[in-house]
């Protein structure tokens, strides 16, 4: 499983990834493959650094060890210019949208176009309106981010992420804190962008059922390792106790309910001393 197989069908391949802050290891040898034109889900309990993985793929953070190839090129060996060119081919949807608060919805979506293309303003307008139409928010173009609900912000951010027609979009916890309606809207959007535009999608989430229903392939990450991977059906049928606990949402199991601590009796006695 080590070494990169140069399959043209892989857009991103992560090999033996290691990453940590100080002595705390977030990843300890993780392999992940992202196939072109597919929706790949990365799931795991909170605090396992799923967002970190996206930032490493995007080249914002540098891993302690291992490699990340994007379309055959090592993300972390690029100079700044090449990295920036690479990032134009990736879109990223941040958890809360991360819209630029001093710009309107329209200008937010137009931002990457204005930065990276020399298109005429009329053309930019057309593209922006089409992208906003795709997320159903063409009518909200003159609003400012503070006037949007959380779900709307994410949809605008999605329009912005696809403004440059990227090869891949990374979704960071797209469903967290959403009501069922906007969750459904976002799910349909991710799926339809994938099928209609062929955009490769990476979805990081801990909303198991929602993600499994739109994903083509899923990874379950916990404790710095990949616990299991496979198609949604394979995941659902997994034998691993940890995967089962995660899927079924049981409070105690291989992931203990209690944070690591000395036995209670000892702690209480120690206090009485």
């Amino acid at each position: 499983m080590t070494g990169h197989e140069q399959t043209p069908d892989l857009l991103v391949s992560v090999r033996d990834l290691r990453f940590g802050y100080g002595s705390r290891m977030i990843y300890d040898g993780v392999d992940v493959d992202i196939r072109r034109g597919k929706v790949t889900a990365i799931m795991g309990p909170s605090g396992t650094g799923k967002t970190t993985l996206l930032r490493i793929i995007g080249g914002q953070w540098r891993p302690t060890g291992g490699t990340v190839l994007f379309d055959g090129a090592d993300v972390h060996q690029q100079n700044r210019k090449a990295l920036y060119r690479m990032r134009q081919r990736m879109g990223m949807l941040f958890q809360n949208g991360a819209l630029l608060t001093d710009l309107t919805v329209f200008d937010n979506v137009a931002y990457p176009l204005r930065e990276h293309t020399k298109l005429a303003e009329a053309l930019i307008r057309d593209i922006v309106l089409m992208k906003l139409e795709a997320v159903g928010l063409r009518g909200a173009r003159d609003l400012y981010p503070e006037e949007l609900s959380g779900g709307m912000s994410r949809r605008v951010a999605l329009a912005r992420a696809i403004a440059l027609d990227p090869d891949m979009v990374m979704y960071d916890e797209p469903f967290t804190g959403q009501d069922p309606i906007s969750m459904g809207v976002l799910m349909r959007l991710i799926r339809s962008l994938n099928t209609s535009l062929g955009i490769t999608s990476v979805v990081v989430s801990h909303d198991v059922e929602e993600v499994l229903s739109i994903a083509d392939y899923a990874y379950i990450v916990a404790g710095g390792k990949v616990l299991d991977h496979g198609t949604p059906d394979q995941i659902r049928g997994s034998e691993s106790a940890l995967v089962r606990q995660f899927l079924e949402g049981r409070p105690d199991g291989p992931v203990p309910f209690h944070y690591k601590a000395p036995p209670l009796e000892q702690d209480l006695m120690g206090d009485a001393r």
Partner: peptide, 22 residues
């Protein structure tokens, strides 16, 4: 600070825009 806290700076970086320059 707020732009940092709300990921706006990261979002710029991911849009291949250098926040230092912009």
């Amino acid at each position: 600070g707020l732009m940092r806290a709300t990921d706006q700076l990261s979002a710029m970086e991911m849009m291949a825009v250098d926040p230092m320059r912009r």
